[in-house]
Design a binder for these strands. Structure first.
Lengths: 168, 168
DNA sequence: CAATAATTGGCACTTTAGGATGAGCAGATA
DNA sequence: TATCTGCTCATCCTAAAGTGCCAATTATTG
């Protein structure tokens, strides 16, 4: 009964968390804009008291919004990527961007390992699956990316994830 | 005499062109800001005529500068990249930088072809040499780069040429 | 001119990659 | 409940990659 309640609560909350996560940047940006507009409202009467000239006020305002825009532009275009640590196998070069091109999560994981220059056997050892399974995934992702070998697969994936980054 | 004059003129102009090229983005952005401020000056009196409310005016202004900021942010962070022409085989990714790491000219050519995702037979056809020769070069360059397969070779070479590029 | 390096090519062999096909299980969905 | 998707694993086969070793010719260098 208690566990069921918790389970149901999770099911209700999850969509909102997902929506929040998706729109977080937009929400934060909107809040930032609202906050600054509020500050403008609060200090509006001071404009006419002429502590600062209108031009300087506009200049400061322009600077603030430009900085916000630059920050937003960088955030917006920057692909999700982690600095490649040499010995780490949790490096994500492609992240989750290839999903929209038909690759499953596991296939993307396999491709990450291929990108590290590993053999199929090494990938099998790393992910605790069999060599046959790795081959199966490799073959499937080659088909989805329309490539003939691992070098082409890597390049195609990088192309797609770069395109996806600049398209958003 | 005449050629000397032209030559001296070029020497004088070149630094300014270089400076202009370096600072072009900043200059253009400054001009954009100045232009918008000029527009504000021109329309300033209209603010008090109240065609639009102050809040709406600030909102439009914020939007304009945000867009400029986003554009600037994208331009600022966008990596310098060359589109790899699909059918071209004369694209040089590594150039002649690998010579200092022990690779011969031919070995670098072979690596360029590998980087295009080609099989050894395709490389042999492209360079008009035999499959055995390609294998020999491949094996040699693997040894010099201290790698085990072509994916690792490509990454090592990119690493080395990036290091060389940033070092300059 | 001799020595060295680069380039070319071969053969035999092992390892790895890749293609084709089939099958079972778990979870999600209509 | 049936269907679909993702993941797993297998077998068989061919192709490609890669290794080791050897050798000849040409270009470069001291």
């Amino acid at each position: 009964m208690y566990l069921e309640t918790v389970f149901l609560s999770c099911k209700i909350i999850a969509p909102f968390l997902f929506l929040y996560n998706m729109k977080k940047t937009i929400v934060l940006y909107g809040l930032a804009i609202a906050l600054i507009l509020l500050v403008i409202q609060v200090f509006q009467y001071q404009l006419f008291v002429k502590y600062i000239s209108f031009e300087v006020f506009i200049g400061i305002l322009a600077m603030i919004f430009t900085v916000i825009g630059v920050w937003f532009g960088i955030r917006w275009t920057s692909p999700k990527k982690t600095t490649i640590a040499k010995s780490s196998t949790k490096v994500l070069v492609f992240g989750d961007q290839l999903g929209s091109y038909g690759l499953s999560k596991r296939e993307t994981e396999i491709l990450e390992q291929i990108n590290l220059g590993k053999t199929n056997q090494e990938i099998a050892d790393e992910l605790f699956i069999s060599l046959s399974t790795v081959k199966s995934h490799v073959s499937n992702l080659f088909s989805k990316l329309d490539v003939k070998n691992r070098v082409q697969a890597i390049q195609k994936a990088k192309e797609l994830t770069n395109t996806a980054s600049t398209k958003v």
